[in-house]
Computed example of a mutant assay.
Amino acid sequence: MEAALGHAILTVWGALGFDAELMARYGPRVVDGLWTTLGLVAVSCSVGFLLALPLGVALVEGGRVTRALCLSFSTFFRGTPLLAQVFLVYYGAGQFRDALDAVGLWGVFRDAWWCVAITFTLNTAAYQAEIIRGGVRSVARGQGEAAAALGLRRGQTYLTVILPQALAQGLRPLGNELVLMIKASSIASVVTVYDVLGATKYAFSRSYDFEVYLWAALIYLVLVETVRRVWNLLERRATRHLRPREA
């Protein structure tokens, strides 16, 4: 599948009039970088969402200490640059090599890809938690009261009543967060991860042909536009019960 998609991408590039020799030499490396980018975004956004669910609920339902801890986490990762966070994890992990080696985690933190994936996950979890918190607060209080009147426990109420409505309300900002993560993934190239931009920088350093950056811009544009269109379909389907029926 990867080979077929890579061939299709190179064919499209050729049809657009890009330099065939340059494309044959560096195109496969850029396609490999595309898979790296997709992997980073998929892992960070999916795991970040799993972390954001309890964080978002805790920001609403937690006690004073719990809310303070969750708010501190959210404030730090939303208030500091993503690039600085990547540097803190990638370069800072080496300061604790002995401790990480003792617990068997140095093998993870010595790999630039995992450092970036962990940083992206924590960063997007903070943003998604705030989106979920806003969605939960948008659900009318009467929904929870009605569920309690039916004998549902608090956990059951959240799983079956509150969270589905909160996520439906937050679909649009969650989609925006996914788009932002796709574009922000280019930061990974700064710490030697050969994603789309990393592979493009390598190609430019060997060829000095600015055309390779047009490849990268086109790839990011296609990714973002694809996600936008797919997310629009998901949002329309998830919120179809909120729209008035046609006559």
Rank of each mutant, 00 (worst) to 15 (best):
E225W: 15
G134V: 07
T121C: 03
R245A: 14
V116K: 02
L105G: 03
G94L: 09
R236A: 14
W114E: 02
C45K: 08
R154D: 08
I162S: 00
G56P: 05
L171A: 13
G104W: 10
I9Q: 02
W113A: 07
L233A: 15
A184K: 12
S185G: 04
G104V: 06
R137T: 13
F96T: 09
A203G: 01
D32W: 10
A8W: 13
E235Y: 06
A42R: 05
L38Y: 02
S189H: 09
D209M: 06
K183V: 12
H7G: 15
D111Q: 12
G198M: 02
N176R: 06
L152H: 04
F77W: 10
L55E: 07
L100P: 10
Y91V: 03
N176M: 12
A3C: 06
Y220D: 04
G107K: 05
V86M: 12
R133S: 04
A238D: 05
L100H: 08
V161A: 00
Y194T: 14
A238N: 05
T124R: 12
L82A: 03
A149G: 08
L50S: 05
A102R: 09
L40S: 01
L242C: 13
L16Y: 07
P173I: 02
A117S: 06
P54M: 00
W231V: 09
G170Q: 02
A247F: 14
D98M: 11
A42M: 11
A68T: 13
E211K: 02
V196M: 09
G79K: 03
S74W: 08
M1G: 11
L218W: 12
T124C: 12
G94H: 14
I131N: 02
E246C: 15
Y208P: 09
L100Q: 04
W231E: 08
G14D: 12
D111N: 10
G63M: 07
F77G: 02
R133F: 05
G63L: 03
F76Q: 06
R236F: 10
V190L: 06
T75W: 15
M181R: 09
L82M: 06
F204I: 04
T239L: 15
Y91A: 04
E211N: 01
E130D: 03
L197K: 01
A84N: 12
D101C: 10
R67S: 03
V161F: 03
G198Y: 05
M1N: 09
T37Q: 02
S185P: 09
S72T: 14
W13M: 05
R137E: 15
A42E: 08
V103P: 11
N176I: 15
M23G: 00
F109E: 13
T80H: 07
L83A: 07
L150N: 08
E2V: 14
A217M: 13
V65T: 11
M23Y: 06
A125H: 08
L221G: 13
V196I: 15
G155I: 06
R228L: 14
F204W: 09
V43R: 01
G33P: 01
L171E: 07
D195N: 11
R67D: 11
